[in-house]
Design a protein around this nucleic acid. Structure first.
Lengths: 203, 203
DNA sequence: GTCTATAGCCAGATAGAC
DNA sequence: GTCTATCTGGCTATAGAC
């Protein structure tokens, strides 16, 4: 009843596939490289996952399942807006920094095939951002924050959190920084992004 | 002496190659597709550019030359900081929106090979951001803006401008918008990003 | 379940006629 | 300069032994 040994090879393959697909993309990835990284034979990949496409799908789904819930959560907690912003930027920047290839991987493959994402971000109803909208409207009424379009605010926060990591190879060059120094800037952002956002909206 | 006809085929190939490489990336692009799009034979690509690699390099350089100067300029004008921010976000968002595949293309290929970018962003001296730093320090002294790390500010502005366009396929899903509605949000950002940034830093 | 060997295809590159 | 035909290598996928 206890399946331990059986999942093992499959798990090892998935880990290796994640690594290769996320660095090289679907088109650039080679089944041989995945096999080598997993320390097994190329034929085994097909034994477990039938085709490159199927293996890719498995990796893609796992990436989505890692990213999506964390973003949806920011919209659905009952914390004060400022705490939401602080928590999200801090945790999300740290998370994306550890898995820096995931967002780019998802964006690239969505460009190839927009249908890959069915409804990863759909919550039960369409109340997903209704909650955020209401919350912001209330704070505007109370005079705690300036009037702002909630969707734009969400775009601001996500952009400030993800892009410096995704665009690192480009931004490193613009700022003329080496890896260590750039990494320090990212670390700093875990707190300074929230400050920046809150400064902008609070009255 | 006047070379007109000779450049023609080369130009046509370059345009087609830009299109295909920027959508599919180096690995996903097919010489056959480029030839088809250019309306010529596959052998001609090799006649003019020798190899896929060389053709790719030409496209990559042209993309860099389109992006880099515009970013460097924000740092090197003598306008007031607030005007810099307004001008940059407005013009850059509009520009990137017209060429939405360029930033992603550059980031992806830099990930594959960090050496592709030699010194596209180097100005004559290392005074490139020194100017921005001085300008911000002065405004802090005068009490016009809060103290802020100039490099973080630059990261903020670039992220807010580029990511909503680059990450469109992902963000469209998070916000559950169709193409038209999302495009309207982008258009709005041409002005609201500058507001957001300035609100945050001015006292 | 795991391996070796190989089928079969496709893409980049070249040869050579015009 | 432009084309058709073809070589060559590399990649996915499978057949079949153990």
């Amino acid at each position: 009843m206890v399946k331990v040994k059986e999942n093992n090879t499959e798990e090892i393959i998935l880990e290796a596939a994640k690594d290769v697909f996320q660095h090289k993309g679907m088109a650039g990835a080679r089944m041989q490289e995945i096999a080598d990284k997993a320390g097994i034979n190329k034929a085994m990949l097909h034994y477990y996952f039938r085709s490159k496409d199927k293996l890719f799908s498995a990796v893609f789904k796992s990436a989505i399942n890692l990213m999506a819930p964390k973003i949806v959560k920011i919209i659905n907690t009952d914390e004060h807006l400022f705490d939401k912003i602080k928590n999200f930027t801090n945790k999300y920047i740290s998370f994306i920094n550890k898995h820096s290839y995931i967002p780019l991987f998802i964006i690239n493959e969505l460009n190839r095939n927009p249908d890959l994402l069915k409804d990863a971000f759909k919550t039960t109803d369409n109340q997903l951002e209704q909650k955020l909208v209401t919350q912001i409207d209330e704070l505007v009424q109370k005079g705690e924050i300036r009037p702002i379009n909630p969707e734009q605010l969400l775009l601001h926060i996500i952009s400030l959190s993800i892009f410096p990591i995704v665009g690192k190879p480009l931004l490193k060059n613009i700022l003329q920084k080496d890896d260590r120094t750039y990494q320090r800037l990212i670390k700093e952002r875990q707190t300074c992004v929230a400050e920046f956002v809150i400064n902008s909206i609070k009255i």
